[in-house]
């Protein structure tokens, strides 16, 4: 997977390049809009990461320009603005995504994955998910761990489903809030942790291998190994 990172801050460039490469991406870097246009034409990229505040032009104009010359790779917009303006919303409806700075790396990677998945044809809609000895029946909304059915509330099931779909990968609290509760909020209380804590009590019963792991300062991961 080849990604074009358009970002003018060197510090951010550096750590993004490192973490993207660690995640297995090939990274091209442009520090301004001109370079970005040149690189985008020269090489085919699977995905673009574009910062809105570029020194020579507005990030949105750049995206629209690239779209006009036939580059249709999905774009993850990085915005330092608080409110999302209507043009970003328009791009979001067109299949792109945005992330406000500062962000968690895990969230950036998750959004990249989602964008790539969205643009590749979906083969078959799964009705069952299996992670180790945990099985989820998405139609009957039932979860089974080691042959034992789990007594989950509907909300807990949705939460577990989200963790299972991202098994082995870190999910942050804000990702959980957005995906499970549909809200982009940042509560300064431990609301998500309590949900995870309760879910863990049901999924990781006594004597069982603990699956839901907390990565302090980052988020959670459902272990698949």
């Amino acid at each position: 997977m080849r990604v074009l990172l358009v970002e003018d801050e060197h510090d951010i460039q550096a750590f993004l390049r490192r973490s993207l490469e660690e995640a297995g991406y090939q990274v091209d870097i442009a520090s301004d809009g001109k370079t970005a246009e040149r690189l985008a034409v020269e090489t085919t990229h699977d995905i673009l990461i574009v910062d809105l505040g570029l020194p020579d032009q507005d990030g949105i104009s750049l995206i629209l320009k690239l779209r006009k010359i036939g580059i249709d790779a999905p774009v993850l917009i990085l915005s330092a603005r608080r409110s999302v303006d209507d043009r970003v919303r328009g791009l979001e409806q067109g299949g792109d995504d945005y992330l406000t700075k500062p962000f968690a790396l895990a969230e950036l990677l998750a959004r990249l994955r989602n964008l790539l998945k969205r643009n590749s044809p979906q083969s078959n809609e799964t009705t069952k998910i299996k992670v180790l000895d945990l099985e989820l029946d998405l139609l009957r909304r039932e979860a089974i761990r080691s042959g034992e059915p789990l007594q989950l509330t509907p909300q807990e099931f949705v939460l577990l489903e989200y963790l299972c779909r991202n098994a082995g990968r870190v999910v942050t609290r804000s990702m959980i809030l957005e995906q499970v509760w549909g809200m982009r909020i940042q509560p300064d209380t431990n609301v998500v942790d309590v949900h995870i804590y309760r879910l863990r009590g049901k999924v990781d019963g006594k004597g069982q291998h603990p699956m839901i792991r907390t990565l302090r300062g980052v988020g959670y991961v459902l272990k698949d190994r």
Partner: peptide
């Protein structure tokens, strides 16, 4: 935000 992003990134690394 830009320095915050950079700091957060480095901390995560």
């Amino acid at each position: 935000r830009s320095p915050l992003t950079a700091i957060r990134g480095k901390l995560e690394m």
